[in-house]
């Protein structure tokens, strides 16, 4: 087995554990590179099927290319899609800086969906290398009654034994990509030929390295117009992946507060 095989096998193992242990499970599908890889891994794990709903928490502020991608691949991949819209921004904590508030709106949309469908497990495609706070995550991460993360006292998790039981009213976040890096993701996309939104590829000297809402995500200067070129670019760059995401750095603790409140 090579490096990518090992990553894949570990993710498949996690997804199968989640499917076996958690009664009402859904996968978050943000339409970005990580969540497309995640859907792909689910098809690997379950031999061509995705045996739980795939959920797009719609901020209605995504790029048109992303909506087109969603509608096409929901069909082609035979996904059971949930695409509920987020509540208006006025309902969100007003003390947060603007970009963070936009992210918090998504958290609220997620919380509503969890309540509406009664999910007790949510699969999310976060990675440890993205951001220092995410680096502290568990693979199976328990969330409180309103989705909050008690990061000061996380349960132990080792030898691939996950904490899969939970008190009523709470849910688990499952992170099958936690051990992947951005580079791994692109190498796997290349190997498996996984379809991607074209915004990731450079046009007129710009491309998106990370895709969020239109108003809070910015493209980077790049000439990388193919997957292979992106990989070469990543081998050379020292710019962080989420540099184009405004919300991460509005204040030092912005991201921690978002995640503690239930953000992905």
């Amino acid at each position: 087995m090579n490096h990518l095989d090992r990553l894949e096998a570990q993710s498949v193992y996690i997804l199968r554990e989640a499917f076996n242990r958690i009664e009402k499970l859904a996968m978050l599908w943000s339409l970005g590179k990580d969540s497309n890889v995640m859907v792909w891994l689910a098809k690997k794990a379950f031999f061509g099927h995705v045996p739980f709903p795939v959920m797009h928490i719609d901020t209605e502020k995504k790029f048109p290319e992303m909506y087109a991608f969603r509608d096409r691949y929901a069909q082609e991949w035979n996904l059971s899609l949930i695409a509920d819209k987020c509540p208006p921004v006025e309902e969100v904590d007003q003390t947060l800086p603007p970009a963070a508030r936009s992210a918090a709106r998504k958290t609220l949309g997620l919380r509503n969906a969890i309540e509406r469908y009664g999910f007790n497990g949510i699969i999310a495609g976060i990675r440890r290398d993205e951001e220092a706070v995410r680096s502290k995550e568990r693979v199976f991460s328990p969330r409180g009654e309103s989705g909050q993360w008690d990061f000061r006292d996380q349960p132990p998790e080792f030898w691939d034994y996950f904490n899969t039981d939970l008190p009523p009213g709470t849910h688990l976040r499952v992170h099958p990509l936690l051990h992947w890096t951005e580079m791994d993701i692109w190498r796997y996309i290349a190997r498996e030929k996984i379809p991607m939104v074209e915004l990731y590829f450079a046009r007129n000297g710009k491309r998106y390295r990370s895709l969020g809402d239109q108003d809070i995500t910015f493209p980077i200067d790049s000439k990388a117009s193919t997957i292979e070129e992106i990989i070469i670019e990543l081998e050379q760059t020292r710019a962080p992946e989420r540099a184009g995401r405004a919300m991460d750095r509005e204040t030092e603790d912005a991201f921690e507060r978002l995640r503690a409140a239930g953000y992905m």
């Binding site: 328990p142 132990p156 998790e157 080792f158 904490n163 008190p167």
Partner: peptide, 11 residues
């Protein structure tokens, strides 16, 4: 490992 209720308590 051993679990007690929701959580792992020993390995």
């Amino acid at each position: 490992v051993l679990s007690d209720g929701a959580n792992i308590v020993a390995g």
